[in-house]
Structures are given as structure tokens and as C-alpha cells.
Write a protein that binds this DNA or RNA. Structure first.
Lengths: 120, 120
DNA sequence: CTAGAACCTGACGTTGACGTCAGAGGCAAG
DNA sequence: CTTGCCTCTGACGTCAACGTCAGGTTCTAG
């Protein structure tokens, strides 16, 4: 598939795909005239990249962990790195749950009809 | 307390505190000579701001929700906004859990001594 | 064969939450 | 009184993940 199709299928921009290639995250075959060609599996890979970005990992870290996550190739170092990132995500989850619960309590109090501070 | 003390107590930089004031998130009294003075409660407020930043909220949104979360002052609009952000955080948590579980599976497979792809 | 869509490289623009530097003033200690 | 640390304003720097534009090439439908 070509870059526009991949972008549509994976839900990202064409520019983002070229950026991923620039960062070494996503390789592409080329036609004799220089246009990028991707295998169908690239869709999953792009979505994985997006998922890791969403978890707050920078390109460099994703680059280090992708062979590990994607192909199952692992060294002791990459495994440790993987575990460290997992723990970081865990802390992030815990923080978000605390924030959500705090917002929930605020909502509960503010939704209480007997609440004294309604502006309306 | 002065700005340096608050920064130390809340675990942020002096620059960050001035930035929060610039964004309208954190008011400060001033000495006759113009130096900022904060009440002890500012520590909690700064940590709340940090928590909301960590949840991915931009300054503008925090500004809209702070009176609500901090003082319990709520309008129907801010309440809806609050609920929307709560739901966004919920989705964010779900995504992070999926990512963490994916990493967990990779770690489990790669840690398996019978795994075929260990480089070492 | 030709128009228009899709693609290419290269390069500069954007945004948010600060970092950092310059230059000047304030403040307790010795 | 001066040394040294803290503070002030103002302004430019940073970094990451792209957006966007320019100027040119390639592919495809009619």
C-alpha cells in the first residue's frame, strides 16, 4: 500500500508517517521512482507507535523498544528498559486514577442539590 | 511564604510558579517592594495544578476548572466541562492499561527461558 | 494526452510549559 | 557597607511531534 492509504487505514497523517520513518520507527520499501510502499502489517505497527506515543514515550525510547515489542527480539537491556517503562506507565495510571477520583468527588458535591455554592 | 519557599515545598521551579501566575492559575500578594507572598494553602493549589497538567489538561482548561475544583464554585457549564474532562481521563486510563498489558505480555514472553529469540 | 490527485524532498512554522540569561533591585549577616 | 543570596521583569531559547508551504515529479482516469 502507498502512504496515503496507510495514513487513512491507521488514522494518522501522511506527514506523521514520514516523520516516523525519519525517526527510524517505520521502514518503507520504495518503487523505482522513489514512492514509499508499505506491507499491510504496517497498519498495526503504526497503531502500536501511536499507542506508545500516547503513553508518553518519546521517539528515542520507542525506537529502542520497538524490535522488542514488535518482533519479540529482546536483550537483557531492552527487557529491563521495557520493565522500567511498564512501571512508569503504572505510576501514570495511578496518578490519573487519583485525579479522576478527585474530579468525581467534586462532581458529586457540585451535583448535590443541597450544595450551598451553586452560582445558578 | 516567598516564591522560593513555595517552589521548594511544592516541588516545582520558581519559573513554573511565575508561569502559573501569568496564566491566571495562581494569584499572589505582593510586598510593597513587589515581591510575591503566598499563603500556606498555595502548596496544595500548586500540587493540584501539577496533577491536572499531568492529566494532560492545558492551562486554559485548568483555568476554567480551578474555581470549581478548588473552591467548589460551580456553574452548569463548568460542571459539564468537569464531567467531560473526567471522561477523557477515563479513556486515557483505559488506553494506558491496554498499553501496559501489552508490555506485560511482551515481558512475559521475552522472560520465558524457552523463548526462541533471546539475543544473548 | 492531459488534468488532477497523490507523491517527493526540503525547510520553516506551531504549540505548550517551561529553561535560561541579562540587568537591576531588595535583604539579612557580619 | 558590602557580600551574597533571593527576587524582579522582560525576552529569547528549547524540545517534540508534527503542520504547512514551495516547487517539482509521478500516477491514474477520462
Amino acid at each position: 500500500m502507498r502512504i496515503g492509504e496507510l495514513a487513512g487505514a491507521a488514522g494518522v497523517s501522511v506527514r506523521a508517517l514520514r516523520y516516523y520513518e525519519e525517526q527510524g520507527l517505520l521502514a518503507a520499501q520504495r518503487t523505482p521512482r522513489g514512492q514509499r510502499v508499505y506491507p499491510p502489517a504496517a497498519v498495526d505497527r503504526v497503531q502500536l507507535i501511536q499507542q506508545l506515543y500516547a503513553a508518553g514515550l518519546p521517539s528515542r525510547t520507542i525506537l529502542e523498544l520497538l524490535p522488542c515489542v514488535d518482533a519479540g527480539v529482546s536483550t537483557p537491556e531492552s527487557l529491563a528498559r521495557l520493565a522500567a517503562e511498564r512501571d512508569r506507565i503504572d505510576e501514570q495510571i495511578a496518578g490519573l486514577i487519583a485525579t479522576r477520583d478527585r474530579l468525581d468527588r467534586v462532581i458529586a458535591i457540585a451535583s448535590d442539590p443541597t450544595h450551598p455554592c451553586m452560582t445558578s
